[in-house]
């Protein structure tokens, strides 16, 4: 019993010593320098603020999470659909591949203000932004999964006769699903971060808005507690995506 506890705590210590060191250093520095909590509160003060009123964080966190998930799904459906479409036509593939590459090599986040202006300051805009940011990884990863298939897909369709559906189910889906799920896992935490940034910029709703408000009122404890919740939401999204990836891979491969 004690040895099990010892083993567990030594494992935790091995993994989290650096994080603990940074947090402890932060607390010690704040205490030693006697910083006021407006300038920079210590981790204990941030935690106290959160524990004092956890429910006030739950609603914005839930909204941000929902927006991120909906945007992520939209982006992935559109990105994968376009990838499949461009795989099925050599012409479309040739036209779209370089564009996809261009968009992965530019900071897509800088497009947020443009989208905000185009669509208006609205929750739907946040969803669109998240979808846009998730679109490109889905397009690129699914595309590269499909390209691992034998080339000359047009002929393949013909060989399979009229049954395009069969071909899609037997060939296309299994070969692109591992890459799709990998992109899903890598993008899920980014979706939350993109949602937070969009909310922050437009001041609509959710954690980004809460953060902006708290920072504007110099309520630094609340601002940092909001970041903490955003971080946890993002990590949770990663965990969920990882679980989904394992499940789907077990089913499909």
């Amino acid at each position: 019993m004690t040895s099990a506890i010892f083993e567990l705590s030594s494992r935790v210590a091995q993994r989290y010593w650096a994080v603990a060191l940074v947090v402890a250093g932060w607390q010690i520095w704040v205490s030693a320098a006697g910083l006021s909590s407006i300038v920079l509160p210590g981790p204990l003060a941030v935690l106290t603020d959160f524990v004092g009123d956890p429910l006030s964080y739950a609603e914005p966190a839930g909204r941000t999470f929902a927006v991120a998930v909906v945007g992520l799904l939209f982006g992935f459906v559109l990105g994968s659909a376009l990838a499949v479409l461009s795989w099925s036509s050599r012409l479309l593939n040739g036209l779209l591949t370089p564009l996809g590459l261009i968009f992965t090599s530019i900071p897509v986040v800088t497009l947020i203000p443009i989208i905000a202006r185009l669509l208006g300051y609205d929750v739907r805009t946040v969803v669109a932004i998240v979808a846009l940011i998730c679109f490109f990884p889905a397009f690129v990863y699914v595309g590269s999964g499909l390209r691992a298939l034998p080339p000359g897909s047009d002929d393949l369709f013909r060989v399979f006769g009229g049954s395009r559906r069969q071909c899609f189910l037997r060939l296309v889906l299994p070969s692109s699903i591992p890459n799709l799920m990998l992109a899903f896992r890598l993008t899920a935490p980014e979706a939350v971060l993109a949602a937070v940034v969009a909310e922050f910029l437009m001041g609509t709703d959710g954690l980004g808005h809460m953060f902006r408000k708290a920072a504007g009122e110099f309520d630094t404890e609340r601002a940092l507690a909001t970041s903490l919740i955003a971080t946890i939401t993002s990590v949770a999204c990663f965990g969920l995506a990882l679980a989904a990836e394992r499940r789907v891979l077990r089913r499909w491969t």
């Binding site: 010593w17 650096a18 601002a223 970041s227």
Partner: peptide, 22 residues
């Protein structure tokens, strides 16, 4: 290695705008 891996992952998971006030 495990400790540094976690630290780097945690820092990466913090939304960048949230790092700004710090």
């Amino acid at each position: 290695r495990p400790g540094l891996d976690r630290l780097v992952a945690v820092i990466h998971a913090i939304p960048s705008i949230a790092l700004a006030p710090l």
